[in-house]
Design a protein around this nucleic acid. Sequence first.
DNA 1: GTGAAAGCGCTAACAG
DNA 2: CTGTTAGCGCTTTCAC
Lengths: 337, 337
Amino acid sequence: MKKKGVTSREVARLAGVSQSAVSRCFSPKASVSEATRQKILDAAKELGYRPNSIARSLTTRSSRTVAVVIHSLESPFYSMVLERAARFFQGQDYHLQLFVASPGESINDVIDSLIRSQVEGVLMLAITLSVDQASMLADVGIPTVIINRTVDYAGISQVGCDNFHGGFWAATHLARAGHHRIAFVAGLAGSSTSEQRRDGFAAGLEAAGHTLAYQDIGHYRYDDARQAARRLLSRESPPDAIFCANDLMAIAVMETARHEFGLRIPEDVSVMGFDNVAMAAWPSHDLTTVAQPIDDMVIKATELLMHQVRDEETQPQHIKLPIVPMVRGSTRPPLKC
Amino acid sequence: MKKKGVTSREVARLAGVSQSAVSRCFSPKASVSEATRQKILDAAKELGYRPNSIARSLTTRSSRTVAVVIHSLESPFYSMVLERAARFFQGQDYHLQLFVASPGESINDVIDSLIRSQVEGVLMLAITLSVDQASMLADVGIPTVIINRTVDYAGISQVGCDNFHGGFWAATHLARAGHHRIAFVAGLAGSSTSEQRRDGFAAGLEAAGHTLAYQDIGHYRYDDARQAARRLLSRESPPDAIFCANDLMAIAVMETARHEFGLRIPEDVSVMGFDNVAMAAWPSHDLTTVAQPIDDMVIKATELLMHQVRDEETQPQHIKLPIVPMVRGSTRPPLKC
DNA sequence: GTGAAAGCGCTAACAG
DNA sequence: CTGTTAGCGCTTTCAC
């Protein structure tokens, strides 16, 4: 019973009209008389006709497709961003092509594939782009918005939050609580986001007369952060406060501190994260963190992308949203002086 | 500097060959002499040529695209499945079109969109399909695999695990631990998965001489499950064991029990989940659960789908994988008798 | 091995 | 409002 490939021509024949009438009938601004429209619709229904959007894309030279490139779905922050972005694009009648790009070479393949697919825009989630890669996209004229990473190239839009300030605030918060041996768990080595958070954190510590005692790396992942926590907490004089480049790692650090080292949080060690994922608010984690305005980020990024897609003239923008401190129970309260 | 739309014809002209030579040069089984191949490649590089895959799809009548339809990305189980599926399809040089389908009417729109896009296959993640919807896909000849949901229609493949047995085991485990007032928190009302788990659970209780004391519903979501937990634990004689249709809800129940009702787990109330997401193993949750063989499920589902895509003759299959009991600390140990 | 020619299914002028 | 006519950029016979 396969009705594979019903074409507009077949519908036209059945309806006794020209093929282009059928085409018009399925176009937004149809100039078709009610009479023929009905004939066509009937014929179409009978045959189970659906316009072939590949053919349409070829003639209109518009794929109505955007690509989303994501590094991993482990972090709930990006699942959330992806889900919202997907809903947004669906609402705009755009298709979404998903690519997962592990850090490294594979990004070039993804970009190549993207371009061949004629996607009209690209949303990069936490993807670190080289200038070459960024300019390749710009050269072929595909608007691109990077969320949560920066690239030193003006031709591409970026949406993120004030990571430096977030890190700075984290430092201030920990310093006020009277911490002394303070550690930072980085995300990825080359990640601008992680670096900005660390730089802000270091600056904040310095401003408070402290220095960053230890640094380790957790690749934004739970397992790696547990390892990092083990290393940090096994030191001769272990940190009494740990700031992590995202919430997932912060939670991993808490798990390790509590269940492997028998430490109390925040009495023995304060822990802070970044993002404010839903989980961070769960009572057992109760994580003090730097909230990224996820709604705003997605809205800004998707709308900016669509503007650039629809209007060639729209210039790439760099948008930096304010962070929101979220004080919860995983950090000691400020000392009263 | 926009090099928009370099065509094979332009490459051909620059290389001094015919357009079809260029086409061959970019086809797998090229029958091109090394000499011209080199000329073409040089010209292509100079112009920044990339074959337009939309045009290719139109002529070959093959989009090399599959669709993945997902209900939500809140549950880490499906994020995981999606990520793995994405990597698999990328490895097969297939594009992945992502659709998010909130339960309800929107699925029809998604299916319509799918068909127009000429996707070659569909992977449905936890999507409840009506027979009409399922047969629509089958009628147009698009192979479809449903993960973790059943539909009473043979034309569509299904991959899932033995939910009934999982529920049964959960009941047995709780009964052995000496529980009496046992509750179940369902996922979604019409969800076959949730119903099978409940049926198996009820059967297991019955086999052990118990009955299902309470039922509530959490829509597979954290927030709703917290509400359900509040209702259950506020009862006059609250349950002493709660089995939830997925891990996310089980964790929500634990959070509520511990932090809102001051209950100890498992001393005051045992909690069980289903899925075995990564989080379930984290020490603070330490959740006893029924593990779904996620790797196998994804492999089976994606490979089955690709077989059906490549070979029309491959018949739809219903695959039921065995579950794996994961006993952790959120349930009381069995009574010694 | 290579070029010419005929489409894939649709949209978009252009006449009528 | 409707039909005719060109393509969109590529793959694919089919001769040469």
